[in-house]
């Protein structure tokens, strides 16, 4: 793992999460000989062409067959390889959920599943291509770690960190071309340890994935109005960083969870489940995609439609404080 210079981060920010992932897998392969990449006919889309060219003997395309993407990867993991299975969040985990449960979760195999285009960035393609339920599906599988990094550097760090974690991991990637750099410099990144991105005593905005960008922007808006706002980057949704939540519960009056996911089963649910057992914990409201199949539109439209812009998040917090 190396320090990533700012100009590289800027390029990654411009290209979007797929390129960050594709480049990071190539970089990881150089350091981790037992790591291999598996995909289901998504080589160019998932920016895996470089990996395929550099490591043809460590790259496998199972065809448009997502159940086998997981079972095949499981078989590789049984024999000690570390497969990174790459697909699209609209399809994986939902279609091979049972393979992920039976093969990866049940046997606690050291396999990684990465889904690109989680959330609604595929806007005009329609609801068939939105990854709205992947956290809910994977979170309910024992042994799985579930992650959603927020920006170029944290995606890179996630891809390296999970190689050192012995067990199944699901990573959802959000943030298309132009997604902001939230971490311009190296920072402490550990699986299961949330990042306190900004301190604040009244509102706590807890986001996951690239929603950190609008959450941080919303915090600026709230601060300008005199509302002290904490921002937490909950890049690991399972296991949840309950130490960080305990701190938030003790110090903040309102929690706003922010996620590009269904309001059921995602980050908001995870926080609420933990909060249910904590006496005197603050109120929580959720910014999410809701629980419906909405009309199509481009990415900006889709985020606005669900109240996931910085402006909407700030307004939600202010209205509930």
């Amino acid at each position: 793992m190396s320090n990533i210079p700012l100009d590289k981060l800027q390029d990654w920010s411009k290209q979007g999460h797929r390129t960050v992932m594709g480049d990071s897998l190539v970089m990881l392969a150089a350091e981790k000989p037992e790591m291999v990449t598996v995909t289901a006919d998504l080589t160019p889309t998932a920016r895996l062409v470089d990996f395929q060219e550099k490591y043809p003997d460590r790259f496998f395309d199972v065809g448009i067959a997502e159940q086998n993407l997981i079972d095949f990867s499981a078989g590789l993991a049984v024999e000690g390889l570390i497969p990174y299975a790459v697909d699209m969040a609209a399809i994986v985990p939902m279609r091979p959920a049972e393979q992920m449960r039976m093969a990866l979760g049940y046997m606690n195999l050291n396999a990684k599943v990465i889904s690109i285009e989680a959330g609604v960035r595929f806007g005009p393609l329609g609801n068939t291509h939105y990854g709205m339920d992947d956290i809910a599906v994977t979170r309910a599988i024992p042994n799985f770690t579930v992650m959603s990094p927020s920006d170029p550097l944290s995606i890179y760090k996630t891809i390296f960190a999970i190689a050192e974690h012995d067990g199944p991991v699901y990573v959802r990637l959000t943030g298309g071309p132009g997604f902001p750099i939230m971490y311009p410099e190296d920072f402490d990144f550990q699986i299961g340890k949330a990042v306190e991105y900004k301190e604040g005593s009244q509102v706590a905005l807890i986001s996951t994935g690239s929603m950190l960008g609008p959450a941080a922007e919303a915090a600026g808006t709230l601060e300008a109005k005199g509302i002290s706002t904490r921002v937490v980057d909950m890049h690991t949704i399972k296991p949840l960083d309950t130490d960080m939540l305990d701190k938030v519960f003790a110090e903040n009056r309102l929690i706003v969870t922010v996620e590009e996911h269904n309001c059921i089963g995602g980050l908001g649910s995870a926080v609420a489940e933990y909060k249910a057992g904590v006496e005197g914990a603050p109120r929580q409201v959720m910014a999410s995609l809701g629980d419906e199949f909405k009309k199509i539109g481009d990415y900006k439209f889709k985020l606005k439609q669900s109240g996931l812009t910085a402006e909407d998040i700030a307004a939600l917090a202010e209205a509930n404080l």
């Binding site: 291999v36 003997d57 460590r58 496998f60 159940q67 086998n68 997981i70 079972d71 095949f72 990867s73 499981a74 078989g75 590789l76 993991a77 049984v78 024999e79 000690g80 390889l81 049972e98 393979q99 039976m102 093969a103």
Partner: peptide
């Protein structure tokens, strides 16, 4: 025992033997 999946995993195990 979740039908079909043992076979899918076995195919991956055979591929792993070849890789290694």
């Amino acid at each position: 025992g979740s039908l079909g999946n043992g076979f899918g995993v076995a195919c991956g195990m055979a591929k792993a033997a070849k890789i290694k």
